[in-house]
Design a protein around this nucleic acid. Sequence first.
DNA 1: ATGAAAGCGCTAACAG
DNA 2: CTGTTAGCGCTTTCAT
Lengths: 338, 338
Amino acid sequence: MVGIDEVARLAGVSTATVSRALSGNGHVSPTTRVKVEAAAGELGYVVSSSASSLASGRMKNVGVVVPFLGRWYFSSVVEGAQQSLLRQGYDLTLYNLTGGGEERRSVFEHFLLRQRVDAVIAISLELTESEVARLHALGKPLVGVGGPIEGVRTLTIDDVAVARLATEHLLALGHSRIAHIGGNNAFDVDFHLPTNRRVGYEAALEAAGITVSPENFQPADFTIRGGYQAAKQLLGRPHDRPTAIFAASDEMAIGSILAARDLGLSVPRDVSVIGIDDHDLADFFGLSTVAQFPRGLGEKAVEILMDQLHPGKRDQEGLNTPMPFELIVRSSTARPPE
Amino acid sequence: MVGIDEVARLAGVSTATVSRALSGNGHVSPTTRVKVEAAAGELGYVVSSSASSLASGRMKNVGVVVPFLGRWYFSSVVEGAQQSLLRQGYDLTLYNLTGGGEERRSVFEHFLLRQRVDAVIAISLELTESEVARLHALGKPLVGVGGPIEGVRTLTIDDVAVARLATEHLLALGHSRIAHIGGNNAFDVDFHLPTNRRVGYEAALEAAGITVSPENFQPADFTIRGGYQAAKQLLGRPHDRPTAIFAASDEMAIGSILAARDLGLSVPRDVSVIGIDDHDLADFFGLSTVAQFPRGLGEKAVEILMDQLHPGKRDQEGLNTPMPFELIVRSSTARPPE
DNA sequence: ATGAAAGCGCTAACAG
DNA sequence: CTGTTAGCGCTTTCAT
């Protein structure tokens, strides 16, 4: 391993100058900067991150905590964050909590505390007070993606508004028997996302003067299979079959489309379907949906952290930054049958 | 931040003893170990990873390089690796190369070299000689998942055998007009996986005395949409329509099932479909497939690295470890129509 | 703009 | 089994 002193010797300057030239901290004349860079390149020098971190207190690394990795939404947020971080020279240390409770504890009580990360991004996790307190005590910037957390900088989508937008699209097409496939309680722990979406759905119906009927609601687990089963219930009714389904995720919406087909119903002629996400598969299934841009969430989260880590730029858009969403109409929604 | 010396003072021992007690390296009497642990717990002490790394040369961190994250296979391998690493007290630093060439260069020439990781796992990446050389020069253990790499410890699935197994299943059911949806050239760069699967398919046919016909092959891009389009070609032919399709991935197989439906064909009555992966969705679609266990790959990769990092245990199963696969028969395959 | 030198917080010989 | 001590390789005042 070639060290900083060898570079200094080759360039004919002190190690301090090499450090300044390569890190960009402190002033170095253009001439020496070039000399140093040449020397470093020639020797294939790369700073030792541990030495650099120990001396400076900066890790050039951010921790990203996710509840799952296999789901499209999460991997997209991570991809977005990763790409932004790489460009800034930062590493991304991943903590996937799929395993369960014990894992979560060890991540928060041990891994995140050993001064390995400069900041952390928590995706769709409702952090406990003590988890937040630990991180704050270390002075580590923290941004939450996916829901408001007490006293934490967050990026959120207005789930109520998203659900209302989707429902209003159906309403505008002339539907009135609109069913909703929402999340079951297991998914309500973090940020009550299913609840919020249901609230938006109901608000839209009420604003249109339509009575919300409990039999037009089915809970599911956010998967294609779950959506399929829920839709079978909804569409299998002998009378008053809904003419439209609003599913709280694209995967459940796709399940609904498949269920409709299996019941001999045509989408969108007999039944319209709309989801939320703009999942990879949405386009293939011609699914109308409300897009939320997860890669953008990851990128924005990094941007906020960088502002906090290197202050001096503009800043503070308030504690909570609302993120954009957008109705995308494809071929799964149309006017209801006569 | 409480440091090791405060713990030492509280416990009434030297910092060296605290280090030994907490890290498990070196002998400490049970009594003092308990005292030290109590002191550390009371003060909420957690080692500074940079100081520890600088002094010891160990990072307790492994780098995982993936070409994509959104695909089921990759995120599953990463999940498996992550879980094993967490249990060993290791962090996982993720390098997602989705961005393209420039990103790959910076990861290999800069990120992986700054002494941040003890080892690296490369998933489905055909590393160049210089990439391997750089890592080896640092003395970093490296394991490749998904294909053999010159001089590198790897974990591979015998793609030829997997494809043969799938094809033989179809053959055993009595099919003879068996089409194959393989990968297009873009996917052949890393490990020639599409080629190998095609070779296995052709070998099985030939062994059964069936002539391989080029019109029974369609390339696609490993997605549901790609499989759908390819299957439409294959199944849309006026005569000699294949009675079975073997797709090189479950996603393409699912696309084939959807295509068959849209063409008014019933699966498996009119056409049988088999894939490779045992994707999350395979069960829902009743897809017969050859399972490869990606979480297991991730876990095994970590196991191998740990053996290399902490020698003394058993070891060396040869440079290349073949991984298991298994035929799973569901409802998408049956005897061909009369 | 550059150099000298004092650590950053911990680990690993080496003694005892 | 435990303490003493010398660094690990870099960054950062403080001078100049």
